[in-house]
Design a protein around this nucleic acid. Sequence first.
DNA 1: ATCGCCTGTTTGTGATCACAAACGCTGTAT
DNA 2: ATACAGCGTTTGTGATCACAAACAGGCGAT
Lengths: 216, 216
Amino acid sequence: MLIHSKATEPTGAAHDRVYRALRARIMHGEIHPGQALTLRGIGKEFGVSMTPAREAGRRLVAEGALFLSSSGRVSTPELSNERIEELAALRALLEPELAARALPRAHMALIERLEDINNRVSGMIARQDASGYIRLNLEFHRTLYLRAQAPAMLAMAETIWLQLGPTMSKLYGRLRRTEPPRNHKLILAALKAGDEASLKLAVRSDATQGLRMLKV
Amino acid sequence: MLIHSKATEPTGAAHDRVYRALRARIMHGEIHPGQALTLRGIGKEFGVSMTPAREAGRRLVAEGALFLSSSGRVSTPELSNERIEELAALRALLEPELAARALPRAHMALIERLEDINNRVSGMIARQDASGYIRLNLEFHRTLYLRAQAPAMLAMAETIWLQLGPTMSKLYGRLRRTEPPRNHKLILAALKAGDEASLKLAVRSDATQGLRMLKV
DNA sequence: ATCGCCTGTTTGTGATCACAAACGCTGTAT
DNA sequence: ATACAGCGTTTGTGATCACAAACAGGCGAT
C-alpha cells in the first residue's frame, strides 16, 4: 500500500476491525440467513483490500458464524431444525452452569445493572427493533456470565449466540412481542434469593424458549 | 503463481491442507505448549507461500488451538491451571450429554469397534507413544459421540480437545501409565447394559481424571 | 559487570496481480 | 415454452512485494 490514511480509523489491525464489525452484525441478527458475501464487497465496504476481508471471513467461518460453500463462497448459514435444536440444547447445557458460577459473586450492584438492561428491552419492543432487542438480550446474559470468571465457557456460549444470530432475527420478526421476557424476571428473582436450583431452571427455560416457534 | 506443480498433493485447497495438518499435530499433542510458529516457516514446510499459512493460522487461533500475541506472533498456548480446569469442566458438561444421545443408537457392532480401539491403546502405552495414545483415546470418544448425531455438539467437544492438545502431551509424558484407562472399561460396560446414568458418570470421570495431575 | 542504545534481521500486515473455477445471462434448437 | 450450450463476468486462491513493527545481538558508557 502506498498511501496510508491513518486518520480514518484509530483502532488496530484492519482484519480485526472487519472481523469485529461483521461479527457484531451477525450476532445481532442484522444479516438474514442465506445472505451471500463477497470478499471484494467486504473489502470495499470497509475500505480495505481483499486480504483482511478474507482473514475476517475465515475467522468467522471457523466460529460457525458463516457458511463456506464448496466453491469458497461465504454466506450466513440457513440452519436446519435439527441444528437449531442442537444449538438450543447447548445453550441449555452451558448457560445454567455459567449462571450458577456467577451466583455467589452476584452482588446487588450487578443485579441492579441487570434490571436496568432488562427495562431497556421494553423500548426496543415498542420500536419493533429486532436487532436492538437481540443486542440487549445478549447483553443481559453476558453481563451475568462475566461474573462466572469462566472465559472459555463464556466464549463458547458466545459462539453459539453467533451461530444463532441470523436465525434469531427471523424469529423475532415473526413473533409479536408485547412484554419483556418473563424468564428474565425469574432469573433476577432467583439471583436475589440466592437460589441456585431455580436460577439454573430459569436460565435453561430462557435459553430454550425462543426456539419452539422456529419450527419451520 | 507462474508454475503449478499439481502432481505433488492431490487434495484440495492449500490453506485447508495446512490447516488440517497443523490441527492434527496440535490435537494429538505433537507440539509442546509455548512453541512459536512463523508464517514463513509454516509456508516453507508445506511448500506454500505465506498466504495459505496465514489463513490456516487464523483459523486455528479462532478455535483456540493457537495463541496470538499482541504483536501478531502465533504459538501454542500455555494454559493456566484455571483454564485447564475450565476446559475439563466443559468436557464434563458436554461429553456425558453426547454419550447419552449416542446410547440408544449404540449397537453391538459399535461397541466392538470401541473395544478394538481400546485394546490398541495398550500398544501405545508399551511404546511410550504419547501422541499415539492421545490419538487413540480421542478416536475412542469420537467414535462413540458420532453416534449421537449431534454435529454442533461434537464440533464443540473437538474444539476443547484441540485446546488441551499441547498440554495433554506434557501430562502423558509425566505420568507413567501401565494399563489402559479404567474408565473406558466402565463406559463399555454401561453401553452394554444400556445404563444411561452410569454411562454419563463414567464419561464424566474419564473427562476429568487426567487433569488432576496437571496441577503445576 | 550492568544497563541502555543502536543497528541488522526477522516477522506479520496489507495491497496487488495472475489465474482458474464458478456463475449467470443470452441466444438457439427442439 | 423449455432445455442446453456458449461466453463474458464475477469471485476465490495463492504468490509476491513494500513496509513497519518487533526482535536480537553487540557495542559503548557508566
